[in-house]
Structure formats: C-alpha cells, structure tokens
Amino acid sequence: MRNSIVEFRNVSFRYGAEEPWVLKDCSFSIHENEAVAIIGHNGSGKSTIAKLMNGLLFPQEGEIIINGQRVNEETVWDVRKDVGMVFQNPDNQFVGTTVQDDVAFGMENRGVPRDEMVKRIEDTLKAVGMQQYLMTEPHKLSGGQKQRVAIASVLAIFPSVLILDEATAMLDPKGRKEIMNTVTAVQEQRHLSLITITHDLQEVVQAERVIVMNEGKIWDEATPRGIFAKKEELQSIGLDVPFVAILSEELRKKGVPIANEALNQDELLEELWTSHLTM
C-alpha cells in the first residue's frame, strides 16, 4: 500500500469574491510513485489544481496536504521543494543565459553546494538527453529541446512530485512522444509521483489512474481503461475518446467478439487475433 503524497480535502477555489467557483468541494489523493492524469475540458479546473498543489494559489475552503504538510503562506517554500512544475510554454520558465545557468537557478535558491550542483546539472541534462547543450543559449533551442531543459531544471531540485501542466501541448506528436518517454523513464528511476494535466489521449493512456474534472468537480476517477469504457458519457461532457476505443465499439456492433477495452493498436490487434482463434 503506497502512502499519499498529495491530498485535497474538500477544496474549493475561485479567483474573486464575485467570481464563480472554479473548484467545488474537491477531494482526492495521489500516492507515492504514482502516475496520474488529470483531464477535463477548458475551464473544468484542472490547471487550477496544479497551481494549488504548488502554492501558486491557496484555496478559500478545504485544505491541501503535500508530503504530510499543509499548504499555506508559511509552508509554501518548503512545499515547493517537494513539488516541481513544468508549464506549457518553456520560455516562461527560462531565467538563465545558458542551459547550464537555467538548470542551476533553482538549486542556487535552495543553497545546494557547488559540487553537488555541478553533479545534478550533469545528471539531469543527461536524463533528458540535453547534456551536449550545456553552454547553449535557451532561445537557440527547438521547442522540444526547451521543454527538456525545463524538465531538467525541475528535476535538479529533486522534487517528490512532478507536475506537467499541458507541458507537451506546443509540441508535434513526435516531440510529445519523446518528452513523455523521457519523463516516464525518469519517474521510474527516481520513484517520483507524476501528475500530467493534458488533452493528449496517449498521455492519458500511459497513466495508472485518471481523474476527470467537469465544471469544477471530480466527475470520475479510475484506470484509463475504466474511464474510456464510458465513451458516450465522456463525449457528453466534451471529452474525446481514443480512436481505437471507438473502432472497438464499432467492431462489436458488427458482431466481432472483442472482450476487453483496447487502449492502443497493439491491444486491439491482440483482441482481434484472440477473437479469430475462438470463432
């Protein structure tokens, strides 16, 4: 049984006293070394959740616990040692004149000794495949390379929780796949809790658990397979379903005996092969 590292307890939030509630009485937990995807249409509250986890915002109601510590104005800097966040546009995170300076920035603020800092810069850039760009100016990098450096900068502070807030949205499909493969590998090596806020269905499929937001509330949470089995319900709240899941449903309607919900092409081919053998 894994321990909870993030807990939302009846959290509600709005951006002003006269504004509508963006989150309404949300409660959930995320465990150590767990990969969770948070999905929902625009305005459902998912990015607000990310900012609340990192202490960029504070709830008007309820409480948030990160690694056993309640998030408030007194604890926010300690909380940010545990929670690293990568945003959609990496240019918003660059502060250094070179890749090396940028990765060092967060560690300098935390007083990491120089020898340790040099080692972490080398290790984190190697982990994201950017070690050869140590002295490169960030503006000379491609979008995918910038996002890799942004991830390295966060990993260098050794967080327990890594949040990707639409971090692959500006990349092409190949770039998205490369970034997520990198992040998944690092998560497994470091035993991080990974929280992915995304519209990309392939990223959702890679998660262990999915939290679906709708109109500021938790609509459902389950495994990707369990969530995507509810095709019509998801579409009714404005969310997409993987093409493979739609194709599987159409094949069932045509009489093809597909027993399990396929999440990718390989699983669908396996189902088709199994059904062929049993026919």
Rank of each mutant, 00 (worst) to 15 (best):
N10I: 00
N10W: 00
N10P: 01
S12L: 02
Y15V: 03
G16S: 04
A17M: 06
P20I: 07
W21Q: 11
V22W: 01
V22Q: 12
V22A: 11
L23T: 12
L23Q: 12
K24W: 02
K24I: 04
F28I: 05
F28N: 10
I30C: 08
H31P: 05
H31K: 14
H31A: 01
E32D: 13
E34D: 07
E34M: 04
V36Y: 03
A37F: 14
I38E: 10
I38Y: 14
I39D: 02
I39W: 09
G40P: 01
H41A: 15
N42R: 00
G43K: 02
G45L: 07
S47H: 08
S47F: 02
S47L: 11
S47C: 10
T48K: 04
T48S: 08
I49D: 04
I49F: 07
K51N: 05
L52I: 01
N54D: 03
N54C: 12
G55V: 01
G55P: 05
F58C: 02
P59C: 06
Q60F: 01
Q60P: 12
E61K: 04
G62K: 00
G62N: 00
G62H: 02
E63M: 07
E63W: 01
I64Q: 03
I65C: 10
I66N: 02
N67D: 10
G68D: 08
Q69K: 15
V71I: 11
N72A: 09
E73D: 11
E73P: 08
E74M: 13
V76D: 13
W77I: 09
W77S: 15
D78H: 15
R80W: 14
R80V: 07
K81H: 11
V83P: 15
V83R: 03
M85P: 15
M85E: 05
V86C: 09
F87S: 07
D91P: 04
D91C: 06
N92Q: 04
F94D: 08
V95S: 15
V95C: 15
D101H: 14
D102C: 06
D102G: 11
V103D: 14
F105M: 02
F105P: 09
G106T: 04
